[in-house]
């Protein structure tokens, strides 16, 4: 999109293109996670209860799988210096696409998955092209695309629609030993994203563009394409999240994404995991930790039977505290 014809692409292996190590924040979030687990364990031991029973662990994994997958996509765009506010609406849309295409029939599962991936990739492409081609700030671009999807949803659906065959519901509910299938899917997406970011050229370019788009461009990176690719990956992740939620609900729902607050919550999980909102610093490992931290926190609150509104308050405080600690650890001029 913004490729400069006068500049020849430079050799790919430039020092500037090497990813930065994930560094402190990613470690910090796991430290906080471990601390929280110990704290929870001690707290419930004193109350004569058990924390982290098998049920609890499975619950944590299942609750966090959808958010986890969306947050991994969000990590990609944030690393590239962009962000995506349209994921919540896209999740609703893809849950409906999946459930309506399947319409309860086993034979339509594969076409439905293909349709979801196609729809989400298209939305990602539009996001990416609006950001890079039309040069609209990602905040406005993805908010606008999100509104467009919301309008289409409002116009076509009043409530849950379509249905998912029993065979597809295995994705949402089955588990292999202590591991739910949904968590394995999350792990697979995370591993693929990690590989892409650390081992492929595209991954290195995502870091380079997010770190400094101008420097990346002068080093021969076609920055536009990289940002578009990151948006497509992010939207596909949201689509996978939509599939997962459809299998959990047994149908598609026009508000499942917005009710879950997946847009802002996925961004919160990403930054909680130490990825810089400005781009170029961070990684998938931190995001997984951030999602798990939110989920364990939820689990503690549930077991303490604390009001759900109090959870929001504590989440807000945790978010600010974490970011304040990361900012202290980073000595930027």
């Amino acid at each position: 999109m913004t490729g400069q014809p006068r500049l020849r692409p430079a050799p790919a292996r430039l020092a500037a293109l090497r990813p930065l190590p994930a560094g402190g924040p990613a470690r910090a979030v796991y430290l906080a996670l471990a601390l929280l687990v110990v704290l929870g364990w001690v707290l419930f031991a004193l109350r004569g209860e058990q924390f982290l029973t098998m049920e609890n662990i499975v619950g944590i994994q299942q609750r966090s799988a959808a958010l986890g997958i969306v947050a991994i996509g969000q990590t990609m765009v944030i690393l590239a210096g962009s962000l995506d506010l349209s994921v919540a609406y896209l999740i609703s849309l893809t849950s409906l696409v999946a459930a309506e295409t399947m319409a309860g029939g086993d034979g339509m599962v594969v076409p439905a998955i293909a349709a979801v991936l196609a729809v989400s990739a298209t939305v990602g492409l539009v996001n990416g092209l609006v950001v890079t081609g039309l040069r609209v700030h990602a905040f406005i671009a993805t908010l606008g695309v999100g509104l467009i999807v919301a309008g289409l949803l409002d116009a076509r659906y009043d409530g849950p629609a379509g249905s998912v065959p029993a065979s597809f519901q295995h994705l949402g509910y089955d588990r292999i030993g202590p591991l739910p299938v949904s968590a394995l899917l999350w792990a697979a997406v995370a591993a693929a994203a990690w590989f892409l970011l650390r081992r492929t050229r595209l991954g290195h370019r995502i870091y380079a563009v997010g770190g400094d788009a101008e420097v990346a461009r002068l080093s021969g990176v076609r920055t536009g394409r990289v940002v578009v690719a990151a948006h497509v990956i992010c939207s596909v992740c949201a689509g996978i999240g939509g599939l997962l939620l459809a299998s959990r609900l047994g149908a598609g729902a026009p508000t499942v994404g917005t009710d879950g607050g997946y847009d802002l919550e996925s961004i919160a999980a990403v930054v909680l995991g130490g990825t810089a909102l400005a781009g170029g610093r961070g990684g998938v490992a931190g995001t997984v930790g951030g999602v798990l931290l939110l989920a364990v926190l939820d689990s503690v609150f549930n077991q303490l039977e604390i009001d759900s509104f109090a959870k929001d308050v504590v989440r807000g405080v945790v978010l600010v505290a974490a970011l304040a600690i990361y900012a202290r650890g980073r000595r930027t001029p």
Partner: peptide, 13 residues
């Protein structure tokens, strides 16, 4: 109602 957000989105972009 229904299509309002969509039109809004297009126009903002």
């Amino acid at each position: 109602g229904a299509l309002e957000p969509a039109v809004q989105g297009v126009i903002i972009i």
